[in-house]
Design a protein around this nucleic acid. Structure first.
Length: 491
RNA sequence: GCUCGUGUGGUGUAGUUCGGUCCAUCAUGACGGACUCUCGAUCCGUCGACCCGGGUUCAAAUCCCGGCACGAGCACCA
């Protein structure tokens, strides 16, 4: 060591530890879970959960359970399409499908079974108090009258709840903890409530539905989850569920937390508010470029690896953070740049006639400046070309990779083919090689569409190109009139 | 009100468990330069931080006490 690298021993002062920290506990059979509500497709915020869980599963050779927490039919009702959207988006982000996929709504018999057992064992009870009345008991650390009912009475009321004899709001099943607990959130917390709304997938078969804390607790145990990674807003859920696990004699998984994330450009990630903005027509749909959805990121051409590197770099901390999209974009740019071919896009074009000795040849430009292996793009030269109106200034310009010209009105006099001085270099396009195009760019609350001309050489729908002097964009489609639709990615 | 959590450069992040090897890591950003027939890439340089106040100690980002700030939970949402 000392002879091979004498100063390696000293120089190793501060090294940043890359990657995720070690998971606590046993690593031999790691089971994690990602549990979204299928009330919409996945957002950029969700992708943190996918990345972190999938990465830990990869590190330890463990599994990830993708679980649809769809037990609310009223406040955040599930969207049937969201189940397959999320399944596919999970796979896209993680680079592999989830190991186990379950829907909470399919597992109702299990939840109801445990609920009944809890009541029978005296660890839970049917509470008929109105919510604000119970709230009052809770704040006073007093027990509500329902708490000391006999087991038989609880059980018969439980049956009434399930039969639909008790209306919504008429009863709730509570986990018996301790009304004198210092943390008010833990005092006899609600486990199941009545919902008569039909569930979009299982209909009106069930009248009693578990709340998140109960459903999630039971299912984590059923699936053998060893590590729960969740937002720190759910810390009290851990404490509530630990109390429930004690009733059942189960051992609670390790829980890890992350703080709230905001992105400067988008703020938070509320599926519900996105849903509202779509139904009210403010946004065009879940793939609207202004929305922080995975669908929008896919349309723009982000690499799933950029999400992975981004979230792993951010790590798993409990700090509430706000990061700029620029950070994600720089990860993405680094990933895609070497494999992204260049093309010319002239926005808001102005036609120019070339005057002078027009060489009778084709111009060969590299598809990638640092990678000759991908070959050239070939332009047939004509005397009609287009330049960007923002570059139009009467005077001396260099048409990139072609010629020095002097511009006056809409005529470009060729001064020389060789680069003769330090004049401004602009991108351009022979009209013969151009196709109409529209570059669509999200800009805050607006969507900006720039009409222009795109170099019409080997265009493949779905590919990302770097538009010279403009930035990265994904070719989304050709319209019927053959106009190319480009979606802006980043600079 | 009660309970819980977090505070390191503009933004993130490493280091905090077991004080010294930290005049504090890395990335991103901003600024400047080199190179390049893209405003991309690459390369070089510069800027910039331990919430505050005490205490313990030879030594504190790290331990203790007290403040302050921010966030969250106390939903018949997830």
């Amino acid at each position: 060591m000392e002879t091979l690298a004498p100063d390696a021993l000293e120089r190793r002062k501060h090294v940043k530890i890359e990657g995720l920290k070690e998971l606590p506990g046993d690593h031999s059979k790691v089971v994690l879970r990602f549990a979204p509500n299928p009330n919409g497709p996945l957002s950029l915020g969700h992708s943190r959960g996918v990345v972190i869980n999938a990465e830990y599963a990869r590190i330890y050779g463990g599994k990830v359970v993708l679980r649809f927490d769809d037990t609310d039919t009223k406040v955040k009702p599930p969207i049937p399409d969201a189940y397959h959207w999320i399944t596919e988006e999970y796979e896209w982000i993680a680079g592999r499908p989830a190991d186990v996929i379950i829907r909470a709504s399919d597992r109702m018999p299990t939840y109801l079974k445990y609920a009944k057992k809890m009541i029978r064992d005296g660890h839970g009870y049917v509470c008929r108090c109105e919510s604000d009345k119970f709230r009052n008991f809770r704040s006073l650390k007093e027990e509500c009258p329902c708490r000391n009912k006999g087991c038989d009475e609880n059980l018969s009321e439980w049956e009434e709840m399930n039969n639909g004899e008790i209306l919504e709001g008429g009863a709730v099943v509570r986990v018996k903890t301790d009304m004198s607990l210092p943390n008010p959130a833990l005092r006899d917390w609600p486990a199941l409530r009545i919902q008569h709304n039909p569930h979009p997938l299982v209909g009106d078969k069930y009248k009693v539905w578990p709340l998140l804390d109960f459903q999630s607790a039971i299912e984590d145990h059923e699936q053998g989850v060893t590590h729960i990674i969740r937002g720190k807003d759910l810390m009290d859920s851990t404490r509530k569920q630990t109390l429930l696990y004690n009733h059942f004699g189960w051992e609670y998984p390790f829980a890890l937390y992350w703080g709230r994330v905001k992105v400067h450009e988008f703020g938070g990630f509320s599926t519900t508010s996105m849903r509202d903005s779509i139904s009210s027509g403010i946004h065009e749909g879940w793939g609207d470029l202004r929305l922080p959805t995975i669908k929008a990121l896919q349309r723009r051409g982000f690499s799933p690896n950029s999400l992975k590197e981004f979230w792993i770099d951010l790590g798993l901390t409990q700090k509430d953070i706000s990061v700029p999209m620029k950070t994600l974009e720089s990860f993405n740019a680094r990933i895609i740049d070497s494999g992204t071919e260049r093309r010319s896009f002239v926005g808001e074009p102005i036609e120019i006639s070339l005057v002078g000795e027009l060489p009778e040849y084709e111009i060969n430009l590299p598809r990638h400046p640092e990678d000759s292996g991908v070959g050239d793009r070939c332009w047939k030269l004509g005397d009609r070309i287009a330049i960007q109106s923002s570059d139009f200034e009467s005077g001396k310009l260099r048409l990139k990779d072609f010629a020095d010209i002097t511009l006056s009105d809409s005529r470009g006099v060729i001064d020389s083919i060789e680069k003769s001085d330090g004049r401004k270099i602009i991108h351009w396009l022979p009209l013969d090689c151009a196709r109409n195009a529209r570059l669509i760019t999200p800009h805050g609350k607006e969507i900006i569409e720039i009409e222009g001309l795109l170099e019409d050489v080997d265009l493949v729908i779905g590919n990302v190109y770097q538009l010279e002097r403009v930035g990265f964009a994904r070719l989304e489609s050709f319209q019927e009139d053959s106009t190319a639709i480009l979606i802006w990615l980043h600079g």
